[in-house]
């Protein structure tokens, strides 16, 4: 089949599959619709589920939940009259011992720093986007959000807390703390707001290429 090699006129009308480099005409999608690549069956794009205002509201909620999840203990235990509890930070600190401190940095990034930055940056770009403004430092915020995404591991952390509860449950009294419930809600919120969907802001705000 002869293939055209003329340059494209308007970049905004096109969409490229990130998994296989296929080029398609972009079609607007409705809420809940998903476009799949015909060549590799990967997701091309999804219809937006939420408005900017809703995303902003959820990012504020995520901020509050993040504070709760970090201030309150996630698990407390008691054994023969002795009592102890742990916060997220406390568990990261427990890894920071001599030779293995490096892994404490990874864990700290995964369960505290990356989610915190994600929430803060999302709030910053969304609070401006909601007024149809491009936030100062918009480009660097959006780029950082892209690079943070794979390193934010709240889902894994939540499962880890549950496993730890069961693991210790066999030998002592274990009580889930307020932090655990906050963590569970935070995880859901992060999944909703911090996905690839946020790339829509580039188009919604009409950021002009230079």
């Amino acid at each position: 089949m002869p293939r055209s090699t003329t340059p494209l006129s308007d970049p905004a009308q096109w969409i490229i599959c990130e998994h296989c480099d296929s080029l398609y005409h972009a079609t607007p999608l409705n809420k809940g619709e998903t476009a799949y690549c015909l060549r590799c069956a990967g997701v091309l794009s999804r219809g937006h589920r939420m408005t900017i205002e809703q995303l902003l509201a959820l990012s504020i909620a995520a901020g509050i939940m993040f504070v709760f999840a970090n201030v309150f203990p996630v698990i407390s235990i008691s054994m023969k009259g002795l009592y102890n509890q742990v916060t997220l930070w406390g568990s990261v600190e427990a890894l920071a011992q001599g030779q293995i401190t490096l892994i404490a940095l990874v864990a700290g990034l995964a369960i505290i720093l990356a989610p915190a930055l994600q929430i803060a940056l999302l709030f910053w770009v969304l609070v401006h986007a909601q007024r149809d403004e491009i936030a100062p430092g918009f480009k660097i915020c959006m780029r950082t959000l892209e690079h943070l995404r794979p390193w934010s591991m709240l889902e894994v952390c939540l499962l880890g807390i549950l496993v730890a509860i069961i693991k210790l449950g066999g030998m002592l009294d274990v009580h889930p703390g307020v932090g655990l419930w906050a963590m569970a809600m935070l995880m859901v919120l992060i999944v909703l707001i911090a996905g690839k969907d946020i790339r829509r802001l580039w188009d919604d705000l009409g950021v002009q290429p230079e």
């Binding site: 996630v74 698990i75 235990i77 102890n84 509890q85 742990v86 406390g90 568990s91 990261v92 600190e93 427990a94 890894l95 892994i103 404490a104 990874v106 864990a107 995964a110 369960i111 591991m153 894994v156 952390c157 499962l159 880890g160 807390i161 496993v163 730890a164 693991k167 210790l168």
Partner: peptide, 13 residues
């Protein structure tokens, strides 16, 4: 990363 986080929590507690 599950195991790393479980060890961290258990060791802290």
């Amino acid at each position: 990363m599950l195991d790393v986080l479980v060890v961290a929590l258990v060791a802290a507690l």
